[in-house]
Design a protein around this nucleic acid. Structure first.
Lengths: 251, 251
DNA sequence: ATATTAGTTCTAGCATACAAGTATCCCAGT
DNA sequence: ACTGGGATACTTGTATGCTAGAACTAATAT
């Protein structure tokens, strides 16, 4: 583990982050804890590499270790934490190899989605939905509303999968994309604005789908995703990511 | 739950399946149990819909409920079992919607793989590996060696991803493919032989890669996978699958 | 014969206690 | 100053007991 001083921003203790959180005793405790921790990790409020203590979390949430541990097991299973026997439980670092794999998976699935969307038999209504999302996105960018932008970005991609007839494919594959989301969150925290460029890319994709031109839609998507290897080396070189990433998926 | 009498074949109790299994006390008990149960479920020796008792399994393996439960939680997380509060833990039925989604994911990722494989700069050695796998596959088919056939099929697909430079993509995505594997196992148990056809398809893919013709490789792969919707309706209609499948992913 | 309801028996959820391994710190020796 | 080793204080892994709720059974009322 690196020192807190080495990190770009101050490391918040889990205790600070959970302060004031109360659980609903009538709902399943394990899943409440799971949701809380997953959100904290994906939004990088819990830092990659940070150590988590089952006991400490249990105390902060006024519960016993068992549900905390069971939530940790689920988080370990989706590789958001790594439980190291007799040592501790750590928030996983962002794995470059996992990130690269996730980008490949994302690209391939979205290629299928835009291809399918371009073949939608009666596309008018579906395309109207896409147009609506894009115009709302433009508003969100103008108002610098990050949260809305993210939601709309998500809605855009989901709509493509719906049009292709594979509504569930994206929600299934999202489980492989946590590291991509963490990188995005870090970029966004550092006010790295890519909104306008993304909007233009999305517009090009919609135009191709409107023209029912699957090949052009695929090309537009490839352009949108960009060159993976260059993106990877930029990620590895990025000083702001230092301490957050690991080449392989250790810790 | 349906009656055991309704099922195509006799339902083996978990106790029968675990008879004689002893765990290594020096290794992590939870993961040993996880591996055992995962294999039993994917190979359909534990039947879709079958109820599992934490207590019973713990007794059969001479351990306590805790590691069994933790293994169950991991299995629940990858949707091989479903833990129903205060009711029981059940082997999930094969979900038609999950199966369909898995086929889409599989196709899209393999499209990327064969496309990438066709672009391998110095392909001679890699293609020699593919040729070797195919000739071994032919032997396995001649000898009706199911286990070897499966292993080689897996090796073939893995080699494609290696050639495309995305070695980990397949192992990552396999977590979405359990239902596909279960369907295969059921078909194989019923001696539904598709080996020769698969071998010919694989040969066509290799030929296209050898010619560095990415488009033709994609076409060969699409032909290999076939028409998804027809496959789905065949699956739903198949009497041998009755009781094993569910339209949505309930239970 | 059927519907309903009370009672019993099962389940998973959670709390707690203990066991076993790991990392750290302190101190002795070089 | 630095290295080596051992005690100590942590960590997760496992065992067990208890509770609340679901499901099944069987008896009762209609």
């Amino acid at each position: 583990m690196t020192n807190a001083e080495d990190q770009p921003t101050a490391e918040l203790t889990i205790l600070q982050l959970l302060a004031g959180t109360v659980l609903d005793a009538n709902q399943n405790i394990t899943f409440q804890i799971f949701d809380i921790l997953r959100d904290l990790i994906v939004s990088v409020r819990l830092r990659p590499g940070q150590r988590l203590s089952e006991k400490e979390i249990a105390a902060a949430l006024c519960t016993s270790k068992t549900p905390v541990r069971e939530a940790m097991i689920r988080l370990d299973e989706i590789k958001l934490v790594r439980i190291v026997p007799q040592s501790g439980t750590y928030v996983t670092k962002i794995s470059v190899s996992r990130y690269r794999t996730a980008c490949f998976i994302r690209l391939q699935l979205e290629l299928g989605a835009v291809r399918g969307a371009a073949l939608t038999p009666d596309p008018h209504q579906s395309i109207a939905v896409l147009d609506g999302i894009l115009s709302q996105t433009a508003k969100a960018i103008a108002q610098e509303d990050d949260a809305a932008f993210c939601t709309l970005d998500d809605a855009f991609h989901r709509q493509l999968f719906i049009m292709a007839g594979f509504k569930d494919a994206w929600s299934t594959a999202r489980r492989t994309q946590f590291d991509v989301n963490r990188v995005r969150h870090i970029r966004r925290m550092q006010r790295i604005i890519t909104g306008p460029a993304q909007l233009a890319d999305h517009q090009a994709i919609v135009d191709a789908i409107r023209a029912q031109d699957g090949a052009r839609a695929e090309d537009a998507l490839r352009a949108h995703i960009g060159d993976l290897d260059r993106q990877i080396s930029a990620l590895v070189r990025d000083d702001k990511m230092r301490g957050f990433i690991a080449l392989e998926d250790s810790i």
